[in-house]
């Protein structure tokens, strides 16, 4: 644990200085400021922000995570020549990548909200937005690490990451709708629940929207979740599934990292 802390500390100071991270923070600052400044209803602004982060966070976490691990290869080599074990190194790098991404996001959202938003009324909802965003960051960084470790070729790994993002953010919804349409004469609710659990982007959206309780924004999968589990249990189940989504790719990536030749 002490080793993880040390590695994390150095990774953090390295990543926080990268230009990417500054752009990422500025991006959230700009979006969030314009939304909170130009709408009187902070609830609506948070909803719009949600629609932005659900697309942007997976994309940036995947690309940044994949590239970072490729670029850190020599650094990993150098570290492995020091008396440290591979597990500590892995978690040090993982936290060193996902924590600054999360911090950029939190800072970029929180600052405009405090300055221009309706802090007394909508604070709970903003916290939920931040939790969803952080969960998505942790999930997609661990997926990115897994992709980066199983592909030695940088271009291939990056392509893979973009495809995963496209599938989960764009194509998946269409796929679910297609399945529902094809099997419209059969009860498809159970399969719809399974399908949404298989996609962390969808899960994140459901987790947030169940609290927000706007049925029009929930989408079909969200509506099924609500009908099946109700709001509280639905949120609980989607939250647990999101946590599982952090650990499964993580486990696969760690196993690969421990055996890998550098």
């Amino acid at each position: 644990m002490k080793l993880v802390n040390k590695i994390f500390k150095y990774e953090l100071s390295n990543v926080l200085r990268s230009r990417w991270m500054i752009f990422y923070t500025l991006f959230f600052l700009a979006i969030s400021y314009s939304l909170f400044a130009f709408t009187n209803d902070s609830g609506k602004a948070i909803l719009s922000l949600m629609n932005v982060i659900i697309v942007v966070i997976p994309l940036v976490s995947l690309i940044f995570g994949t590239m970072y691990l490729y670029n850190a290869r020599e650094f990993v080599e150098m570290m492995l020549c020091q008396p440290i074990d591979r597990k500590s190194l892995y978690f040090g790098i993982y936290l060193g990548t996902s924590v600054p991404l999360s911090l950029s996001f939190i800072f970029g959202i929180l600052l405009p909200f405090i300055v221009r938003g309706d802090v007394s009324e909508q604070f709970g909802l903003l916290i939920l937005l931040i939790v969803t965003g952080v969960l998505l960051t942790l999930i997609f960084t661990s997926i990115a690490f897994f992709i980066s470790l199983i592909n030695n070729d940088k271009v291939k790994g990056l392509g893979f990451s973009i495809i995963i993002w496209l599938i989960m953010s764009v194509i998946y919804d269409g796929f679910v709708l297609l399945v529902i349409y094809i099997f419209k004469d059969y009860p498809v609710e159970n399969s719809v629940i399974v399908m949404s659990v298989l996609n962390p982007v969808d899960l994140g959206r459901i987790f947030f929207m169940l609290k927000f309780d706007v049925s029009a924004m929930m989408g079909y999968t969200g509506a099924v979740f609500q009908k099946f589990f109700g709001n509280t249990l639905g949120m609980f189940i989607s939250f647990i599934s999101l946590i599982l989504w952090i650990f499964l790719p993580q486990y696969a990536a760690l196993k690969n990292f421990v055996k890998k030749d550098f």
Binding site: L3, K6, I7, Y10, E11, S13, N14, V15, R17, S18, N71, A72, R73, E74, F75, E77, M78, M79, C81, Q82, P83, I84
Partner: peptide, 29 residues
């Protein structure tokens, strides 16, 4: 590995860190 000093063929380090920071980091480790 604490008994080994290694000088690799291609030396690459975290690009944003300063030399002294990397040296201090390894000392710390």
């Amino acid at each position: 590995k604490k008994d080994i000093g290694y000088m690799p063929q291609v030396a690459r380090y975290p690009e944003n860190l300063k030399v002294i920071e990397v040296i201090n980091m390894i000392k710390d480790l």
